[in-house]
């Protein structure tokens, strides 16, 4: 586990770097706020309403597709490593697996789910 300890130390150092540099800047910088300066930026116009609104369903479709293929990536990592020991049958098995998944991809393609809408 020695390697992971170094990673954790490195992680702590990154966070420390961010916090220290933000703290130093807090000491050095000027602070002269006024109401107009603190408005949300909308190209100079008075901002109207909140930004937290509904957004298009297309983003969710992409996310759903992503989850399917990301799960595939999880299967690919051990397959890639074990390939030399397993030989050509492993390739055939993966081709069959990808073909089944490919049917899903083809369905999404036919239903125009891969188009941005």
């Amino acid at each position: 586990m020695g390697g992971y300890l170094s990673v954790v130390i490195y992680l702590v150092m990154i966070v420390a770097f961010a916090i220290v540099s933000l703290a130093v800047a807090r000491v050095l910088r000027p602070r002269r706020p006024f109401a107009a300066k603190l408005q949300t930026y909308e190209c100079g116009a008075e901002p109207f309403g909140q930004a937290w609104v509904q957004f298009p369903v297309g983003f969710y479709l992409v996310a759903l597709l992503f989850i399917v293929f990301d799960a595939l990536a999880v299967f690919l990592f051990p397959w890639v490593l074990a390939l030399r020991g397993l030989g050509m049958w492993a390739v055939v098995a993966m081709v069959v697996f990808l073909a089944i998944l490919g049917l899903g991809w083809f369905y999404a393609f036919r239903e125009r789910l891969l188009e941005w809408q």
Binding site: S21, A25, P30, Q39, Y41
Partner: peptide, 11 residues
């Protein structure tokens, strides 16, 4: 960038 004012909008 370190010396710049940090403007945090109220919203």
């Amino acid at each position: 960038l370190m010396m710049k004012e940090d403007v945090v909008p109220t919203a």
